[in-house]
Structure formats: C-alpha cells, structure tokens
Amino acid sequence: MKSKILILTAAVLLLVSCGTQKNASTASTVPVTETAKTVVLTPELEEGKNLYENSCARCHKLYDAKKFTEQEWKPILARMQKKAKLDDTQMASISNYITSQL
C-alpha cells in the first residue's frame, strides 16, 4: 500500500514539474511590446532610492513610481514626509528618484 502511494506521489510530482517547465518556456517567447526605460542612477538618485525603499517600506508596500503622475506624487510625498520624519533634503532626494522613474 505504501509503495502505491509513493509511486502515485512521484508520478504527480513529475507531471506537475513538467507542466511548470513548459509554461515557463512558452511565457518567455511572448513578444514584449512595451520598451523599458533604462535610467542610470547617479549617487543622488541612488540615495533617493535607498531612502524610498528603507523609509517608506517600514510602514507599507512600495508603490511603483509609474502608478501615479508627478502631480499625484507631490501631495503623497508631502504627507508621508511628516509621518516618516524626513527632512527637506531627504525628501528632495526621494522626489528626484521618483521623478526619474516616471
């Protein structure tokens, strides 16, 4: 009885793993229609990125910069500056980083 269960389990695992590999290979052949914008991060932008990731992620998930427009980000960042206790220089770095990602 135990051998039948082990054989059945092994067969199911084999089928699942084969199916997953097939889906992964077909997903990579789908053409990408949107071109990615590559931004080289200067030391200032890198600092803004680190501040954004470390200060903002303490309280909530990080949002993709493209989720909001530059005008929508301004009041969000102003409101979050007080909660995160960031000074104006740190906030300017975060704002510059987010703007660079739009």
Rank of each mutant, 00 (worst) to 15 (best):
K4I: 14
I5D: 12
L6W: 09
L6T: 12
L8F: 13
A11I: 12
L14A: 13
S17D: 01
S17C: 10
G19A: 06
A24I: 09
S25C: 03
T26S: 06
S28M: 09
V32F: 00
T33M: 07
T33W: 02
T35E: 11
A36W: 00
K37T: 11
V39C: 02
V39S: 01
L41V: 08
L45Q: 02
E47N: 07
E47P: 00
N50V: 05
L51C: 02
E53P: 03
E53V: 14
N54S: 14
C56F: 00
R58I: 14
C59P: 02
C59Q: 09
L62E: 10
Y63D: 15
Y63N: 15
D64Q: 14
F68W: 11
K74W: 00
A78Q: 15
M80I: 09
M80N: 07
Q81S: 04
Q81V: 08
K83R: 13
K83E: 13
A84E: 13
K85A: 15
K85P: 00
L86I: 09
D87N: 14
T89D: 11
T89R: 09
S93V: 04
S95G: 08
Y97P: 08
Y97D: 09
T99Y: 03
T99M: 08
T99D: 07
S100V: 09
Q101W: 01
